[in-house]
Nucleic acid binder design. Structure first.
Lengths: 331, 331
DNA sequence: CCTCAAACTGTAATCGTTTACAGTTGATGG
DNA sequence: CCATCAACTGTAAACGATTACAGTTTGAGG
C-alpha cells in the first residue's frame, strides 16, 4: 500500500504538502497538480488508522440497540444510515444484545475511541446503563424515553399521544371495552405503554381492571398469538390495542383461526406501522411511531453535535400519527 | 483518556510490559498484578486507532449490500452480526446504495484499511464491481452468484433448485399454466430466476411463452401489485411464482381486491420465506433461501480466512427448502 | 532593482501503540 | 558460590498520518 511518503517522493514535494492538498489547504496550482497525479499513479489512499490516531477522530458512529429482528429498529437503522450516507461518517452497528450485561460490556468498550459518537436506543431501563452513558466522553444521542438524570441529545416519540390517538379512534367507532396486549414491562416501551393506556382509559372514563392488560412475553407475533389463547376472556372486549404490530399480527391470526371477526367483533390496533400493517388481512390500523424519521433525526442531532460540541443538549419530540385501516373500520 | 504510558508509570513498569500483559505475553505474576491494578485505577482502555496503525488491523468487518428495506438482507445482516458477536470483530454496515457508481465509490474506499474484510452481496452485475473486488487487497466473501473470473470465498444458494422445488410442487397439485412475476433483470437475482424458471418449465414440458414472465419494476409489494393489473392476462394462469415474498404479497393483495381466490383460482408461491409469508392471509407458500444462514456462513468464512489467509478459496452452496402454506394448499 | 508582505513549503515532533533487540534477573545444577 | 540459561523487562524504533513553526518563494509597489 502506498503511503503519503511515497506520494511525496513521486511528486517531488514534502509529505506536508501532500497532506495539505489532500486536506484542502492552500497549495500552488503546480504543486497540487503534481501531487494529484502522484496520488492517481500510485492509487494512494490515506490510511484511516493513522489519521484517526493523529486527529483523534474515527469518522465512525456507532448505533446500538437490542435486536434487528424488530422491523421498527430496521427502519430506525435505515434512517440513521441514510442521514449518515451524505456525511463523512461510517455506520457501525451493534445489535442483538441478549442481556443488560452485554450492553454494559459494549458500552465499556466505547472508551477505545473506535467511534466518535454513539446513538443508542436501550430497551431495558437499567441504572448501570444510564450511569455508563453519562460517563461516556463522547457525544451520545439517545433514542427513546430519557432516563432520569441524563442530559444528552434525545429524540423520542410522544407515545402517550399515540395511545390517545388509538383510544379516541376506538371511542369514535363506539368501542368501550378496550384491552391492551402489552410487551414485557421490564422494557421501556412496555412500561410506557402500560402507563399511557391506564391514563387514557381513566381520562375517558372507560372500564379498567387488571384484566384489561394482557401481558405477552415478547414483542413478537408468536407472543401475541400465545397471549390471547383464552377465547372467553378475549370476547369480553370489543377492541384491542397491541403494543406493536407484530403482537397485533399474532392476535389477528388467533382471531381468524377462531372465527372472531375483525373489526365487527373486535377492533384491533397495532403500534409502529411497519410495512406488515398494510399487508395483513384485514389491513391493520396502526399508530405510526415514525421510527425511520427518529433514526434520521438522531443521526442529524449527532452530526450537529459533532460539528458543534458545546451546544446545550436538545430533546426532540416526534408526533405519532394514526393510520386507519380495515381492522377498525371495515372498507 | 489514560494512555499506556500513564498505566506504566502508575504500575512502575515500562510501557512494553503493560502492552505485554494486555496482549497476554508472559509476565511475572507480580508485574501482571500491578499492571492490572493500574489499568483498573485509571480506567485505561487501549486506543484502537493506535493499535490498528501498528498491527495493521482494524478489527472491523464491513458488510455491504444494496438496501436494508429488503427483509432478506436484514436476515442476512442478523446472521453476520450473530457470527461476529462472539469474535473480536466489529460490524460496519454499508447499505442503501442507489447506483453502481455509489458501490464503486464505496469499494474504492476500502483501501483505507478501516476494515479487515469485506462481505458483499452485490445485486447488480457490473464489470466494474467485479474488477474492483478482484483488486482488493483484503479478504472478500461474496454472498450470491459469483461473477465470472472472480476467485474469492463465496456462499450462494442454489436458486435454480429453489425454482424447481416450487414448480414440482405446483405440478404435484395439478397446475400447468405457470407464470413468473420477476424483479428487474438488471439484477443478479432477477436474471437467475428468469433463467431457472424457463429451464424448469422446459424440463417439465410445460407451456412457456414470453407472456409467462411478468416483469415488475422492483422487488417490492407495490411493484408486485402494479405488475398484475391486467386481470384478463392474469386469469390465463393457474399458478404464479414470485421472485420474492414481497412481490407475492402485492399480487395477493391484487387478487383479494379482485376476488380471485388463492389457491383455488391461482396458486401463489413466494421466495425468501420472510416472516411476512406466515402472516399473510392466506399464508404464503415460499421457497426459503436461508438468508440468515448464508449471513452466518459468510461471516464464518471471513473469520476463518482472516485466521488463515493462505487457504484456497471456498465456495459453499446452501440448499433452499420449500415451505408449503395455504397459498398453494388450502387448509 | 529593492523591500515587504503574503503565500506557500519543508522539517520535525507528535498521536498511542507494538515489538525487535539487548539487557537484567532469578533459579538451577554442579 | 558460580556459571548458565530461561524468563522476564526496558529502550527505542517503528506504524502513517497531521501540523506548528520556521524558512523560502512570489509578486506587487515604490
Amino acid at each position: 500500500m502506498a503511503t503519503i511518503g511515497a506520494v511525496a517522493k513521486q511528486a517531488g514535494v514534502s509529505i506536508a504538502s501532500v497532506s495539505r492538498v489532500i486536506n484542502g489547504t492552500a497549495a500552488r496550482a503546480d504543486t497540487e497538480r503534481r501531487v494529484r497525479a502522484a496520488i492517481q499513479d500510485l492509487g494512494y489512499q490515506p490510511n484511516s488508522a493513522a489519521r484517526a490516531l493523529k486527529v483523534r477522530q474515527s469518522e465512525q458512529i456507532c448505533l446500538s440497540f437490542d435486536d434487528l429482528s424488530n422491523p421498527a429498529y430496521v427502519l430506525m437503522t435505515r434512517g440513521v444510515g441514510q442521514a449518515l450516507s451524505s456525511s463523512k461518517y461510517r455506520l457501525i452497528l451493534s445489535s442483538a444484545f441478549s442481556s443488560v450485561e452485554e450492553i454494559v460490556k459494549h458500552l465499556e468498550t466505547m472508551g477505545r475511541g473506535f467511534a466518535d459518537g454513539l446513538i443508542i436506543s436501550p430497551i431495558y431501563a437499567d441504572a448501570r446503563i444510564t450511569t455508563l452513558i453519562s460517563q461516556l466522553k463522547m457525544p451520545v444521542v439517545l433514542v427513546g424515553t430519557m432516563p432520569e438524570g441524563l442530559d444528552v441529545d434525545n429524540v423520542y416519540v410522544n407515545s402517550a399521544a399515540g395511545v390517545d390517538l388509538a383510544i379516541d379512534h376506538l371511542i369514535e367507532i363506539g368501542r368501550k371495552r378496550i384491552a391492551l396486549i402489552n410487551g414485557p414491562v421490564t422494557t421501556n416501551p412496555g412500561r410506557r405503554r402500560k402507563a399511557a393506556f391506564e391514563k387514557a382509559l381513566k381520562k375517558n372514563k372507560l372500564a379498567f381492571s387488571d384484566a384489561s392488560i394482557i401481558q405477552a412475553d415478547a414483542f413478537s407475533t408468536q407472543a401475541g398469538f400465545e397471549a390471547v389463547t383464552n377465547i372467553k376472556e378475549l370476547k369480553k372486549f370489543d377492541a384491542i390495542i397491541c403494543a406493536n404490530d407484530q403482537l397485533a399480527a399474532g392476535v389477528m391470526k388467533f382471531c381468524v383461526d377462531n372465527e372472531i371477526d375483525i373489526p365487527s367483533d373486535i377492533a384491533l390496533i397495532g403500534i409502529d406501522n411497519i410495512e406488515l400493517a398494510s399487508l395483513l388481512r384485514p389491513t391493520l390500523t396502526s399508530v405510526d411511531l415514525r421510527a425511520e424519521e427518529r433514526g434520521q433525526i438522531a443521526a442529524n442531532l449527532m452530526l450537529n453535535r459533532l460539528a458543534n460540541p458545546d451546544r446545550p443538549s436538545k430533546q426532540i419530540e416526534v408526533q405519532p400519527r394514526l393510520v386507519i385501516r380495515q381492522s377498525t373500520v371495515a372498507s
